[in-house]
């Protein structure tokens, strides 16, 4: 049976149209906005400003000191995002790994515990943030408990250090289940006879973990780290509801800076927001390429086996 050359395009057309309309055209528009200035929304009413928006964002005495930058909040948000990505990803992957290893053992109520750790993933980020806001606000549950044991209440969301800690903690709590699940699948794919052989050789549990589990889980771990890193760089919704980016700019992340600059502030600087989003896109492209490289390396490794 012969198929016309245009038949695949016929079936692909709906998806191609949707992707062009809602992905590629907005990307092209974003490029246009990044090189235009003013506060008008209509592209035809926006004067071209060349690379001014980028130079405004990049104008800094020292990139390590946001207060020396013209757009100090932008650089503060970049450093916040970097700090958050490092802490949140490393701690979350560590806890997810520990949880997966424990849940992979024959413990009582294993199915129940797997459900418990996965449950927060099912919640909307806004719901997660609201629940924790009620717990952490000045008159929240946590302070009520502290007062009950004669301890001083703490402004968990109004002190910069604590606010950052809780943003990281809540995010780990909400997303860890997803990564635990991926790692659990990886653990279950490790052949049981390897552990039996290790037992016969009287290998300690620590040696089994470091010589069998971790090396064989490494491909999954790398994918988890990169995926978590991409999600961490995109962090917005739950933090926006939980702290609004405050106190000050202590929990303002890059996506929130872009959103506020382009859509919330009374005088909307669409050009600056578009330029910022292109810079964020660069970071995400780099991370995505890393993930592709890792999965290709993993496939190549499987082929060699």
């Amino acid at each position: 049976m012969k198929t016309s050359a245009s038949t695949p395009w016929f079936f692909l057309a709906p998806n191609v149209i949707v992707i062009v309309l809602f992905t590629f055209i907005p990307i092209a528009i974003n490029f246009y906005y990044a090189f235009t200035g003013g506060v008008n929304l209509y592209p035809t009413q926006r004067p071209g400003v060349g690379v001014e928006n980028f130079s405004t964002l990049l104008e800094c005495g020292s990139y390590f000191d946001p207060s020396s930058c013209r757009k100090d909040v932008f650089w503060q948000s970049i450093w916040n995002t970097a700090k958050y990505a490092i802490f949140q990803v490393s701690l979350m992957v560590l806890f997810a790994l520990i949880t997966a290893v424990v849940l992979n053992r024959k413990i009582m109520g294993r199915g129940f515990w797997r459900g418990v750790f996965f449950y927060p993933v099912l919640l909307s980020p806004v719901v997660v943030a609201l629940i924790w806001k009620w717990i952490l606000q000045r008159d929240g549950l946590l302070n009520a408990a502290m007062v009950a044991v004669d301890a001083h209440p703490v402004l968990w969301l109004a002190e910069p250090g604590w606010a950052f800690f809780w943003v990281t903690f809540v995010s780990i709590w909400a997303h860890m289940g997803f990564y635990t699940l991926i790692l659990l699948a990886g653990l279950q794919a490790i052949p049981a006879d390897l552990y039996e052989a290790a037992q016969l050789d009287k290998a300690s549990p620590w040696r089994s973990l470091t010589k069998i589990t971790l090396p064989l889980l490494m491909p999954n771990l790398l994918v988890v780290v990169v995926l978590a890193m991409i999600k961490a760089v995109q962090i917005f919704d739950e933090v926006f509801v939980l702290t609004g980016g405050g106190p000050g700019s202590a929990t303002t992340f890059v996506v929130q800076f872009i959103y506020q600059t382009g859509f919330v502030e009374p005088v909307r600087l669409y050009g600056i927001a578009a330029a910022g989003s292109l810079m964020l896109a660069l970071a995400l492209v780099a991370l995505t390429l890393l993930q592709l490289k890792l999965s290709n390396a993993e496939k190549a490794g499987e082929r060699v086996k």
């Binding site: 909040v73 402004l155 969301l157 109004a158 702290t243 609004g244 980016g245 405050g246 106190p247 000050g248 700019s249 202590a250 929990t251 303002t252 929130q256 506020q260 919330v264 502030e265 009374p266």
Partner: peptide, 8 residues
Amino acid sequence: WGGLGGSA
């Protein structure tokens, strides 16, 4: 005033 970010 100090607990939020931006001009919220």
